[in-house]
């Protein structure tokens, strides 16, 4: 497929189909409705299925069911919808079922608004549901990256048998950019016969039970220890972009759309001779703490910019661990930090 101009939501939908996702379960919510609309038009034609669930609560449980058969499954929603899905996400993580969940974030709390936001960072990386579980969380900052991350997400979900969340925001969902979407062939993933439901015959009559219930406390602790081991193994999936960091005296840290705005500010400041760079986490969990600590030790100040009231900044502070001063700048409610505002902040730090 040649490069075509596409809307973010549609690019994510097409990328998922090209990665072999033939099943989609979802519920309408702004600003991501183009994804279920796209899926409802395409999936029946390729032998898959689109089911419009009665709620996000039902949608995520359909995703759990689809994932439990070892099938590539996706759902998409936006912030309040993800809150409703949090129960199911906890079960999916506890039962170790692969699934891809896209959150096209909007402002909160509560009904909030429909404009872009990054206020679900905590929900995504610290868990909105109950229990000690983690999601692999990926945050694209261009539509081409969103395409690649979407396709990679299915492989990661199957490889780790874990829910993977793509954290986009309303800008990413609604903007248009030129993208190239290739058919994606999965790398090495465990065969579904090795664990999934529906393969009892192939396993010679040995059944599979997918559950998170362990009434014996020792068994439940062992289950948690096993999950934590898996989350530590995910450390090797850390992805980030270090932009003009080599000689940076001031380091910016931002993800997703905010990182695009920060990049423009950095370019302008560099033209003025101000040495500023950016560490852009692509995986929000696992967080690129080691790289951030390494870069922070060579700088005076780390400025974290987010479209929320300060969430990722807590992970940055933990990673920097006093090696540099950490400060925060952000907007909430659907307002994006402007290039000018970021430049002014940097100048004020100097």
């Amino acid at each position: 497929m040649a490069r075509v101009l596409m809307k973010g939501t549609e690019a994510i939908a097409e990328a998922a189909i090209q990665a072999g996702c033939n099943y989609f379960f979802g519920y309408p919510i702004t600003p991501q409705n183009e994804i279920p609309e796209y899926m409802s038009a395409k999936l029946p034609k390729i032998g898959g299925a689109y089911v419009q669930a009665e709620s996000e609560v039902a949608a995520i449980n359909m995703v759990m069911g689809g994932g439990s058969t070892g099938t590539k499954i996706m759902t998409t929603s936006s912030s309040p919808g993800i809150s409703l899905m949090s129960e199911g996400i906890s079960y999916i993580a506890g039962c170790e079922i692969p699934a891809v969940i896209v959150n096209v974030m909007r402002g909160g709390p509560g009904l909030g608004g429909i404009l872009p936001s990054q206020a679900d960072y905590f929900q995504a990386t610290k868990g909105g549901g109950n229990g000690d579980y983690r999601l692999l969380v990926l945050a694209p900052s261009t539509l081409q990256e969103a395409v690649e991350i979407t396709q990679m997400a299915f492989d990661l979900a199957l490889k780790y048998r874990n829910p993977v969340m793509i954290l986009a925001d309303g800008f990413m969902g609604q903007m248009m950019e030129a993208v190239e979407i290739r058919e994606h062939v999965s790398g090495e993933i465990p065969p579904r016969e090795s664990w999934a439901l529906g393969c009892m015959g192939e396993r010679g009559g040995k059944r599979s039970i997918l559950k998170s219930l362990y009434l014996n406390p020792e068994d439940l602790e062992q289950h948690n220890i096993k999950l934590q081991k898996k989350y530590r193994e995910m450390e090797k999936e850390v992805r980030f972009e270090a932009y003009l960091c080599e000689d940076a005296e001031i380091l910016l840290s931002a993800f997703g759309t905010t990182a695009r705005i920060a990049r423009s500010a950095i370019n302008n400041l560099r033209n003025e001779g101000i040495k500023v760079g950016m560490l852009r986490p692509i995986t929000l969990f696992p967080f690129p703490s080691r790289k951030l600590a390494e870069l922070a030790s060579g700088t005076k100040h780390v400025l974290v910019v987010e479209m929320n009231m300060g969430q990722m900044v807590e992970d940055v502070e933990a990673a920097v661990c006093g090696k540099a001063k950490v400060s925060f700048f952000g907007h909430a409610g659907g307002i994006a930090p402007s290039v000018r505002e970021i430049e002014d902040r940097i100048r004020a730090i100097l």
Binding site: A58, N61, M62, G65, T69, L197, M200, R207, I209
Partner: peptide, 24 residues
Amino acid sequence: IDVDFCEAAHGRAPALATGIKRTR
């Protein structure tokens, strides 16, 4: 009962089963 099983959250079995049956 010795068949494949998936645990359902409270009340969610019909949605869970929908996902299972649609994919298999």
